[in-house]
């Protein structure tokens, strides 16, 4: 049985090659001039001048997009973590009037497609002047992330033995103290999951970012790159250099955290 290993290796290699070829081609094209890209698309570049990546990064103002994306994603994840864990704690641990109905409300959110609300949300945000600000996207992204996060956190808390909390109560712990000192520390493994889901949902979010952010200095990566790609759409070398260089930090972050990301992802879908 073991001897078939190479067959699988071969299959996987072929698949991976097909899969990686466009990305590799893009990176290599960044070293070629426009004429070379068109006339000899498959040839290797004559020389490798890595300065083109620096140029693309600075010409395109890519740092700005990157920082905005990181900021929006980070704050959104933080707010989701905080508010969803508080809510999940109440749903999981307290008996109170309307708890079922409120939970139901959140659970509907799990299925609601973005289409169901973005048209009116746009008008609402317009009315309240919430559009086109550095943090405009935080509110919709938090709203987007809360249902799933609440559900996941609640599932975690439900699995904890109730004795833990009862003991704390006997010791005179207040409701908040129980959240802070009992529930929160135990939620740590869930935090990675929720953070990963929120981050994956917001990092590349396109539709809302396109509608809400027009100001150059507030653009996130997806919309910033769209501007860049339409401005330099005929300068393929610069375009490919920019597209390559923006993906490098993402790949580094991913490889560094891939264990947590994959674990988080699967925890979420297994719950």
């Amino acid at each position: 049985m073991k001897k078939f290993s190479w067959v699988f290796h071969l299959l996987l290699s072929i698949y991976s090659l097909f899969f990686a070829a466009p990305l590799i081609w893009m990176a290599l094209s960044a070293f070629k001039g426009n004429d070379e890209i068109f006339d000899k698309p498959f040839s290797l570049p004559h020389s490798y001048n890595f300065k083109v990546f620096l140029d693309a990064w600075s010409v395109g103002g890519l740092s700005k997009y990157f920082i905005n994306s990181a900021l929006i994603t980070g704050i959104s994840a933080l707010v989701v973590l905080l508010s969803a864990s508080l809510a999940a704690f109440a749903f999981s641990r307290f008996d109170f009037k309307g708890s079922k109905q409120l939970l139901m409300l959140f659970m509907i959110g799990l299925l609601l497609p973005i289409q169901s609300y973005f048209i009116s949300q746009n008008k609402l945000f317009e009315y309240l002047h919430l559009k086109d600000h550095k943090l405009s996207l935080v509110i919709p992204y938090v709203g987007l992330g809360i249902p799933l996060a609440t559900w996941l956190f609640k599932a975690y808390l439900d699995s904890l033995p109730k004795e833990l909390f009862e003991a704390a109560r006997v010791d005179g712990g207040s409701d908040f103290a129980m959240y802070r000192y009992v529930a929160a520390p135990l939620l740590k493994p869930g935090i990675a999951t929720v953070a990963v889901f929120t981050a994956l949902g917001t990092w590349n979010e396109f539709l809302l970012a396109m509608i809400y952010i027009q100001n150059e200095s507030y653009k996130t990566i997806p919309i910033g790159l769209l501007t860049f790609s339409s401005r330099y759409s005929t300068d393929y070398q610069l375009l490919f250099a920019a597209l390559t260089v923006i993906t490098i930090p993402m790949i580094i972050i991913y490889i560094a955290f891939n264990r947590q990301i994959v674990a988080g992802l699967t925890e979420g879908s297994l719950k």
Binding site: A90, G109, Y117, L124, I139, V142, D175
Partner: peptide, 28 residues
């Protein structure tokens, strides 16, 4: 479990509900 005050569960839920209601339910 019984909350120590009738209102605390709602306070716990309030932030999440605010965001969710404001950004999703109301526009829906």
């Amino acid at each position: 479990m019984k909350p120590s005050s009738r209102w605390t569960p709602y306070l716990f839920i309030a932030p999440a509900l605010f965001f969710f209601a404001f950004a999703v339910l109301l526009p829906m």
